[in-house]
Design a protein around this nucleic acid. Structure first.
Lengths: 272, 272
DNA sequence: TCATCCGGAGAACACTGTTCATCAAGATAT
DNA sequence: ATATCTTGATGAACAGTGTTCTCCGGATGA
């Protein structure tokens, strides 16, 4: 991180004699006292820059201009730090009051919001998959999710499983998304190492599928178009609709809207 | 790790004289010439004994009575080794010919078999989640899976997503299963470090849920019974049924069996 | 018998997470 | 004002990681 000592206004010049007293020759006075939140924040910075594999305690310390051991005063271990990052993801995320008439829209909103949350930091799905949301701060969220299922009228046996099902789906989908992203980035490295070269990768996959022998892989070839060209947002919603329809099939028959619509109510494509 | 060198049956006692000639003092003559398959096999042994976090190249080498660098003659990197382990999982696994009238049973069989496969080695779900099955050896499997969806009559848009959906579900479910298992094993360590102490853990979770304030967590408390006491096999099938029903809802209306049964056809509980 | 070759050995490099004794500076007490 | 205590960061160290390099010894071919 080079050296950024620009916050102490009048540092006396080192004057090569009087060499003793190495006090703060190498770092700023650390004006801000390095709280736990600052450690987590720096960890997110490193995560976004270098990915989960590049996220080491030493990198986080360097990001803060501090030694490694200093971190352990505020964080008990690296796993602890990852868990803090995981729960921090849910900050400012409120579950809606369950509305039996809008359970499908509420589930759609929940899933989309969570996906965006996972996408907001690199490799976040990998961190999410390694944790179970049964900590004190996160319990209200799973309660809110289960509330939607139960007040919608799903049998308890189904509702108990539905939470895991869609949470797993969201994490898994974003995880896979990130894997393609990484693969595209590391492969088209020479030309543009920064951006994933999305188009080029899609074409290459398309060509690969087209090169498969028609006799052995008819279905793979037939579906390659959807797998490659459909946007991630579309694909995410389709998988979600499958799950929602499955859940709806367990509802006691009601006169109005027994099954979800074929087209989601509002699709204001967030990003491509 | 302590010291476990008990695999060479008759190691001659070191006999401190005749100290010269360090030839093979520390390992068997290495009669078998260390093929790539032997490396993968040893990796599985280490994985089952020490878990993915304890699976290091040095441990694999020690398992074979060989130095680390010898492994790199047969395996290009640790990631390569993990990928070999991943594809080895599918050895001897044949996809059935897609039968439009039995697509649900075929999917159930596929999912259950894959779960058992993942359960056959410790932490295998973590390895599986990190890989995408688009290698040459694994493509026939995804082709066979897509064949089931397409010949069943699902729209292409849905079929293309369904493969990812259930694969993600299987991996995610087993991953979570393993996490609970690990947590139970490491927590009840003093009494019985080997076996997970399943009962004790279930009781503890039950008590934890029961201790939550009824006003804030009514649904969590109401569903805790299912989440804790229901067997993993049951829970796995329920999630699977939700997905299958969702898929079935996209089939063009057919006179017979439009939706899956409520009870799975045959439940010969494999293991508890 | 000699030359060749090649697979494994051993050491090294640059890292990782974590812990320890130390030490300067601020706050508090005398 | 002086002395003590507390706080929080330091630097070094430990054990372990993936990977690469040079080197050697024994099995092969001529």
């Amino acid at each position: 991180m080079t050296d950024a000592v620009a916050d102490t206004p009048a540092t006396p010049p080192p004057s090569p004699w009087e060499r003793e007293r190495p006090t703060r020759t190498h770092s700023a006075p650390a004006r801000t006292p390095l709280s736990r939140d600052r450690v987590v924040e720096a960890a997110f910075t490193v995560l976004d820059r270098q990915g989960l594999d590049g996220l080491s305690m030493r990198q986080v310390a360097a990001e803060l201009g501090v030694t490694v051991s200093a971190l352990y005063a505020h964080v008990s271990s690296k796993d602890d730090l990852l868990e803090l990052m995981y729960t921090r993801l849910f900050d400012g995320f409120e579950m809606p009051a369950a509305d039996p008439d809008r359970w499908q829209e509420q589930l759609l909103d929940f899933a989309r919001a969570n996906r965006q949350r996972l996408l907001s930091h690199r490799d976040m799905a990998r961190i999410s998959m390694a944790h179970v949301p049964f900590t004190a701060e996160l319990l209200p969220h799973v309660e809110g999710l289960l509330a939607i299922f139960r007040t919608a009228g799903l049998p308890d046996r189904i509702a108990a499983e539905a939470g895991d099902l869609i949470s797993t789906y969201i994490d898994g989908f974003v995880l896979e998304e990130g894997m393609w992203q990484d693969r595209a980035a590391q492969q088209g490295g020479a030309s543009s190492p920064a951006r994933p070269d999305w188009r080029e990768m899609a074409d290459e996959m398309q060509n690969y599928f087209a090169s498969l022998p028609e006799a052995d892989f008819p279905h793979l070839r037939a579906l390659s178009g959807h797998m490659v060209t459909d946007s991630s947002d579309e694909r995410f919603d389709i998988g979600l609709q499958i799950i929602l329809r499955g859940l709806a099939s367990y509802l006691p028959a009601r006169p109005d809207r027994a099954t979800p619509d074929d087209t989601p109510p509002d699709r204001t494509a967030p990003r491509t």
